[in-house]
């Protein structure tokens, strides 16, 4: 049963319907809370185990010792050895290499790496894609 112009009523109906196009750059796109966007880094909790570096499929992460370390603790008054202060680590994230799989977030034992919903990362300057988190 051939019917020429089978979609006639569907098409005419769409004259009065709301358009499906999302006006993206002018209207913010909403992504799900589970979306895997830019990876953020918390220096305070990082213990420098480099599990993320080992697991990253794209070799996008570098964990280095921070240039500024917290001052060494003063010796305790009673002469016992001081409690060593946690070393501070920086993370250099190459956003141009990152494939946003969030495997580093899954593997981090201290939850120092956090997946954000930030996805508007395109840039004309390549240097800005190398983020240095302190």
């Amino acid at each position: 049963m051939q019917k020429p112009a089978r979609a006639l009523f569907e098409v005419l109906g769409h004259l009065f319907k709301k358009k499906a196009t999302s006006n993206y750059p002018f209207e913010k796109a909403v992504v799900d809370a589970r979306f895997r966007g830019r990876i953020a880094f918390e220096s305070d909790t990082c213990i420098g185990c480099k599990m993320c570096v080992r697991v990253c499929p794209a070799k996008a992460i570098e964990i280095i010792l921070s240039a500024e370390q917290p001052p060494a603790p003063a010796p305790a008054a009673d002469g016992t050895a001081p409690v060593p202060v946690k070393k501070k680590f920086d993370c250099i994230m190459s956003l141009d290499r990152c494939i946003y799989c969030s495997q580093c977030v899954d593997v981090c034992p201290k939850k120092s790496l956090i997946s954000t919903q930030d996805f508007e990362l395109a840039h004309t300057d390549r240097k800005t894609l190398k983020r240095h988190y302190k």
Partner: peptide, 15 residues
């Protein structure tokens, strides 16, 4: 041409 394209777009649920 604009009328044609615009009408076609609206019928296809586009802008």
């Amino acid at each position: 041409q604009w009328v044609d394209r615009k009408l076609g777009a609206v019928m296809q649920n586009r802008v």
